[in-house]
Design a protein around this nucleic acid. Sequence first.
DNA 1: ATCGTAGGCAACCAAAAGGTTGCCCATTGT
DNA 2: ACAATGGGCAACCTTTTGGTTGCCTACGAT
Lengths: 109, 109
Amino acid sequence: MPQRRRTETPAPVFAALGDENRLRLLTRLGGGEPLSISRLTAGSGISRQGVTKHLRVLAGAGLVRSSRRGKESLWQLERRRLEEARRSLDLISQQWDVALDKLKLFVEE
Amino acid sequence: MPQRRRTETPAPVFAALGDENRLRLLTRLGGGEPLSISRLTAGSGISRQGVTKHLRVLAGAGLVRSSRRGKESLWQLERRRLEEARRSLDLISQQWDVALDKLKLFVEE
DNA sequence: ATCGTAGGCAACCAAAAGGTTGCCCATTGT
DNA sequence: ACAATGGGCAACCTTTTGGTTGCCTACGAT
């Protein structure tokens, strides 16, 4: 039996998305090409360590993944989580939709 | 000419979504019915003031709106922002899709 | 008139977040 | 062999966040 997995909360993912710098990193990674930390640091306006910290936050939320190649570590987007997050927003919206429909029905009856 | 509005960052919205308690408040408000602070406090596990603070954060992000009726203030969902947030996630994903398509095309050529 | 209920305001607190710097280690190219 | 480049670790600092409590005000019902 597929054992309904305990619905894990999307809050941490949103929290990770809730920072300008991290969003910028994500969109850059959204380009598809895995990027190194130095690359990501260039033009970011913050220090390399700052970037590293942000990347780790993103990784902690499962939004990004890294792999080492030689002396550099390459980071790339983990799209699954992004979609999960989107779905979470849909849930709230849908709930709202249902409520409105019910109301409409009630009024028109 | 419709003057392309300077793309305002969705980060604050995500930041607002990045908290368990606030997500719970949102889903409750997603029920459609406007709820008072006391109502929302009941069973929330945090104090009334705590709830108030969270509601204000949500309001600050434009995710929720309040109106006073008599001695109570009623809060309801502001769905527009929710959709904007979802769209932001789509943007990153789409960007990724485009990149993948390009790659595919390149490989298959 | 006054009591109970709904909230607002302000002060306070501990912990987390965002950022920095300094120093060390590993890989690579010459 | 060694310099240069890419990163990791740790310490440190300031601001923000999430929460509390105490007290005051406003409305509503009796």
